[in-house]
Design a protein around this nucleic acid. Structure first.
Length: 641
RNA sequence: GCCGGCGUAGCUCAGGGGUAGAGCAACUGAUUCGUAAUCAGUAGGUCGAGGGUUCAAUUCCCCCCGCCGGCUCCA
C-alpha cells in the first residue's frame, strides 16, 4: 500500500500498480473531468500510468487541461494524432520530431511532396476520425537496442538518430491504434480527450534547424481546452493581423518599401517621418538631460577600421561589400562604435573626464539574407539609438544603474509598462579577464536588483566581448519585442587601445558599454504601430486634429482656425472638401486622427469648434484657445509619463 | 540562402492560350448637407522583369526580382 496525499488536503491508501485514473476516483467530478494528468512529487505523469511503490507518502496534484502543463500535454498528444493521420494518408512519410510549442504544436515530416492547404484539410479530417475512434495512448519502456530495432524496422531513420543520442539505457514509446512513436510522454489517456484543435500552416524546416541538413515539411497546429478557447485564440491571431505594422503602414501612409529601392530599405513617408521626428526630438532632449553628448559620424569608412574592430572577421557575412575609393576600400558602417571610439581618442582623456557618454542616432547597414527580412522589424538599413559610455571600472555599476533607469523611463514614455529582463553571462568563447567578467556581471546584477524588477539569467548567452542586459517590452496584446540592450565591452577598448590617465597619472583602460534603448528606430516604430494599432497617442500622432466643415459657408472661418492651430504647433489638417460631414468623420476615424474639429454655422457664429474624439465621443463646443490648451496639456502628460 | 505560396488599375481582389474585370480611391459635374460612406459620369493596366514554347502567352515552361509563412520552443 502506498499512502497518497492530494493537494486538496485529502489522503488515501492505494495499491501500488493502480493507475492515477483509479486513484483519483472519488474526487470531485468537476475536477476529475478537467484533469488530464497528475503531478507526483512534482513530476508529470499520465492518468493511465501506474503508481510506483513508495514507502514515503506520495503527493499527487491533478493537472487540469487548461493549465500550461495540461495544454502542453494535450498539444503533444495532438501532434501524435496528426502524425498518425499523416502516416495513414500518405505513404513513405518519415517522422522527425513533433513537440508542443508555445500556443500550439508542430510535427516535422520527411516527404518528397510538400503539404498543400488541401492536404491540411484532409489531415484535419483524418485527425477528427482518429479522435472519434478514441484510441487509447499506451506507453511502454524499451531497451535502447530494442527501440533501435523497432524503428529501424519501420524505416524511421530520424528516430534512430534521436535514440542513439539519448542518454540512459531505456527509452519509452507511445502507441495509439497502429501508430507508434518514440516519446518521452506523458500523454492524454486517449485520442478522444482532444477537444478542440486546428491545423494552421505548413512550412519547410531543416532537420535540427541546420541548413546543412535535409529540409523537412513542418505542419503547425494548435489545440485548446475547449472550442471557445480555440476560437478566442484564433480571434487573437486575427487581432494581431489587424495590427500588423506592414498593413497599417500602408493604410496610414506611414512608410513603404519598394523593390525599385531594394529589399529591406525603408522609405519613411511624411506621416511616419513625423512620428519618427517626434521620437527623435524627445530622445535628443532626454539624452542631453541625462548628460549625454550627441555626436554625428559618417556612413562609410575605410575597411581597415572594421578589420581593427574585429567586425570584418566576426561579422563578415553581415557586411555589405567594400567600394573602391581612390584605391582604398570603404564599407558602409554596420555599427557606430568605432567612430565614437575615434572621437574619444581624438585627445588625451583624464579620469576627470569620465564618464564620457556619446549618443547618436546612427544609421547602419547590415546585409541580412533575403529570407529573414520582415517589414520594419528586420531590415538592411536602420537607425540605432546608440550610445557608448567610457568609464573607470568603479563607475561601472553606477553607470549601468543610470542606463537601466533611463531605459525604463524612455520605454514607459511610449506606453510600455511590462518588461521581460534578461542578464546574459559569460559564454564559452570570450575575451577579457575572468576577473573583469565577474566584476561586470556583478555590476549588471546589482543594477538590475536595484530596480526591483524581476529578471532572469541566461547563463552563457552573453556576447564574446562582455555580459549584457536585454529588455523585451510587452505590447498591449501581450507580445514581446526585443528592443533595449545594454552591453559591457572588454574587446574594443583593447583593440583600439583606448586609455585614460588615472589619478596617479598612469595610463589606464576604461570600460566601455554599448547601449540602445529603442534598438532601432525602424523596429521600435513598427512595434509602436502594433502596440497602438496605428492609433497613436496625441503627442505622437502625425495628424493631431483635422478640421471638418459642414458647408462652404464655413470655409473661411475654418481656414482661420487652421491657421491658429498651425501657429501654435498643433499638427492640424483642414478638410473643406465638398463632402457630407458623415463622410469626413468616417475618413478621419479610419485615419485614426485623435481629434476632429467640426465647424458648422453654429460654431462659426460662436467663434468655437466642436471636437470629436477618435473613439466617437463628442466634446462640448469650445474656443480654439481652450482646445489648444487641452491638447498641449495632453501632450505634456503623454510624453512625461 | 533554403522550402512552400504569392505578384493583375493607387488599394483590396476576381479571371484565365485568342491582347482583361469589380469595389474603393482618383478625376469631372450635380448636390451645400451636423458626427462612420450623396448621386451621376469619366479616365486608369507592357497582368513584377527578362527569355522560351506557340499562328497566338497576362495565362504554359525557364530564369531573375520582390512580397508572405516558415527554417530546434529539441524524443
Amino acid at each position: 500500500m502506498v499512502s497518497i496525499r492530494f493537494t486538496d488536503g485529502s489522503s488515501r491508501e492505494c495499491n501500488e500498480g493502480a493507475t492515477f485514473l483509479e486513484i483519483l476516483k472519488g474526487h470531485d467530478k468537476g475536477i476529475l473531468k478537467k484533469t488530464v494528468a497528475v503531478k507526483v512529487n512534482g513530476a508529470l505523469y499520465g492518468l493511465k500510468e501506474p503508481l510506483c511503490a513508495s514507502s514515503a507518502p506520495v503527493y499527487v496534484e491533478p493537472v487540469p487541461l487548461e493549465t500550461k502543463e495540461g495544454l502542453e500535454l494535450c498539444r503533444h498528444s495532438a501532434a501524435h494524432v496528426m502524425a498518425q493521420a499523416v502516416k495513414s494518408l500518405y505513404g513513405g512519410v518519415k517522422l522527425a520530431i513533433g513537440p508542443a510549442i508555445e500556443d500550439g504544436f508542430y510535427y516535422d515530416f520527411d516527404t518528397d511532396r510538400p503539404f498543400t492547404p488541401e492536404d491540411l484539410e484532409k489531415i484535419e479530417a483524418k485527425m477528427k476520425e482518429i479522435i472519434k475512434v478514441d484510441y487509447p495512448f499506451t506507453g511502454e519502456s524499451l531497451s535502447k537496442d530494442a527501440a533501435l530495432g523497432l524503428f529501424k524496422g519501420m524505416g524511421e531513420g530520424y528516430k534512430e538518430e534521436i535514440i542513439s543520442e539519448l542518454k540512459g539505457d531505456s527509452v519509452s514509446i507511445y502507441k495509439q491504434g497502429d501508430f507508434i512513436d518514440l516519446c518521452r510522454g506523458p500523454h492524454l489517456p486517449s485520442t478522444g480527450w482532444i477537444k478542440a484543435f486546428k491545423l494552421l500552416s505548413s512550412a519547410g524546416a531543416y532537420w535540427r534547424g541546420s541548413e546543412k541538413n535535409r529540409m523537412l515539411q513542418r505542419i503547425y497546429g494548435t489545440a485548446f481546452a475547449s472550442k471557445a478557447a480555440l476560437d478566442e485564440h484564433i480571434a487573437r491571431m486575427e487581432e494581431a493581423k489587424k495590427r500588423d505594422h506592414r498593413k497599417l503602414g500602408r493604410e496610414l501612409d506611414l512608410f513603404t518599401t519598394s523593390e525599385d529601392i531594394g529589399a529591406g530599405l525603408v522609405l519613411w513617408h511624411p506621416h511616419g517621418a513625423t512620428v519618427r521626428r517626434i521620437i527623435e526630438d524627445f530622445w535628443k532632449a532626454e539624452h542631453v538631460n541625462a548628460m549625454y553628448d550627441i555626436v554625428y559620424t559618417p556612413h562609410i569608412a575605410v575597411v581597415d577600421l572594421w578589420k581593427k574592430s574585429g567586425h570584418w572577421d566576426f561579422y563578415r557575412e553581415n557586411l555589405f561589400s567594400p567600394m573602391d575609393v581612390e584605391g582604398q576600400d570603404y564599407i558602409v558602417k554596420p555599427m557606430n562604435c568605432p567612430f565614437h571610439i575615434q572621437i574619444y581618442k581624438s585627445r588625451l582623456r583624464s579620469y576627470r573626464d569620465l564618464p564620457v557618454r556619446y549618443a547618436e542616432l546612427g544609421t547602419v547597414y547590415r546585409y541580412e539574407r533575403s529570407g529573414v527580412l520582415h517589414g520594419l522589424l528586420r531590415v538592411r538599413g536602420f537607425t540605432q539609438d546608440d550610445a557608448h559610455i567610457f568609464m573607470t571600472p568603479d563607475q561601472l555599476e553606477g553607470e549601468i544603474k543610470g542606463v537601466l533607469n533611463f531605459t525604463l523611463y524612455i520605454l514607459k514614455a511610449f506606453g510600455f509598462n511590462e518588461f521581460d529582463i534578461y542578464l546574459s553571462t559569460r559564454p564559452e568563447k570570450y575575451v577579457g579577464s575572468l576577473d573583469n567578467w565577474a566584476k561586470a556581471e556583478a555590476a549588471l546584477k546589482a543594477a538590475l536588483e536595484s530596480t526591483g524588477l524581476p529578471f532572469s539569467i541566461d547563463p552563457g548567452e552573453g556576447v564574446f566581448y562582455g555580459p549584457k542586459i536585454d529588455i523585451k517590452i510587452k505590447d498591449v496584446i501581450g507580445r514581446s519585442w526585443q528592443c533595449s540592450t545594454i552591453q559591457v565591452d572588454f574587446n574594443l577598448p583593447e583593440r583600439f587601445d583606448v586609455t585614460y590617465r588615472d589619478e596617479a597619472g598612469k595610463e589606464s583602460r576604461p570600460i566601455m558599454i554599448h547601449r540602445a534603448l529603442m534598438g532601432s528606430l525602424e523596429r521600435f516604430f513598427g512595434c509602436l504601430v502594433e502596440h497602438y494599432a496605428g492609433a497613436f497617442p496625441t503627442w505622437l500622432a502625425p495628424v493631431q486634429a483635422v478640421i471638418l466643415t459642414v458647408t462652404e459657408r464655413n470655409d473661411a472661418y475654418a481656414a482661420e482656425v487652421y491657421k491658429t492651430l498651425k501657429g501654435r504647433g498643433i499638427r492640424a489638417e483642414l478638410d473643406v472638401r465638398n463632402e457630407k460631414l458623415g463622410f469626413k468623420i468616417r475618413e478621419g476615424q479610419l485615419r485614426k486622427i485623435p481629434y476632429q474639429l467640426v465647424i458648422g454655422d453654429k460654431e462659426m457664429s460662436e467663434g468655437k469648434v466642436a471636437p470629436r474624439r477618435r473613439g466617437g465621443e463628442t466634446l462640448p463646443a469650445q474656443t480654439v484657445e481652450e482646445f489648444i490648451e487641452a491638447v498641449e496639456a495632453e501632450c505634456v502628460a503623454g510624453a512625461a509619463r
